[in-house]
């Protein structure tokens, strides 16, 4: 059984491949900006015009700690009233689960095929150190 002789990549190709991965990373970093806002937060439906520690439901001890941290009722209200919304979109959840499972299925399946080539060459190969390689 003959071993696979890989191509040798030219310098230009090496540069192109490095840049390709970088561009891919940046694209995936910016994609979420073009989709809906990720961090789902909603303001409290009840808009309080003037805040007091009492209206914020803050205890005396909590009030002391807020003040030690340099906050007054107005600035504390901005933080306290910022809530997360954990509403689940079942369709998006199903799509996300399918993408993750599909990704691992694909990677493991292809890896298994490639691994058999590696093992066959390693343990059955006639030429452990191939001297010549094809140029791309």
């Amino acid at each position: 059984m003959s071993n696979y002789i890989p191509k040798i990549q030219a310098k230009r190709g090496q540069l192109f491949d490095s840049l390709f991965v970088l561009v891919l990373v940046y694209v995936s970093l910016y994609i979420p900006l073009f989709l809906e806002s990720d961090v789902k937060s909603v303001e409290e439906t009840t808009q309080v015009q003037s805040h007091s520690w009492e209206s914020l439901g803050v205890s005396v001890v909590e009030q002391e700690q807020w003040q030690k941290l340099g906050h007054d009722p107005a600035s504390a209200a901005e933080i306290i009233n910022n809530k997360f919304d954990y509403t689940i979109d079942p369709v998006m959840l199903a799509i996300t689960a399918l993408v993750i499972i599909g990704y691992f299925f694909f990677v493991l399946r292809v890896s298994n095929k490639q691994y058999r080539e590696v093992i066959n060459e390693k343990f059955n190969g006639t030429n452990q150190q191939s001297g010549t390689e094809a140029r791309q």
Binding site: V21, L24, V25, V27, S28, L29, I31, P32, L35, E36, D38, V39, K40, F84, Y86, I88, D89, M92, L93, I95, T96, A97, V99, I100, Y103, F106, V107, V110
Partner: peptide, 24 residues
Amino acid sequence: VYFATFLGYGASLLSIMAFYIVAS
């Protein structure tokens, strides 16, 4: 934890998975 990430950063999760799929 994937589910937890979906709750907070669903779009980023899909976008990052797209990166690894295209790279693969």
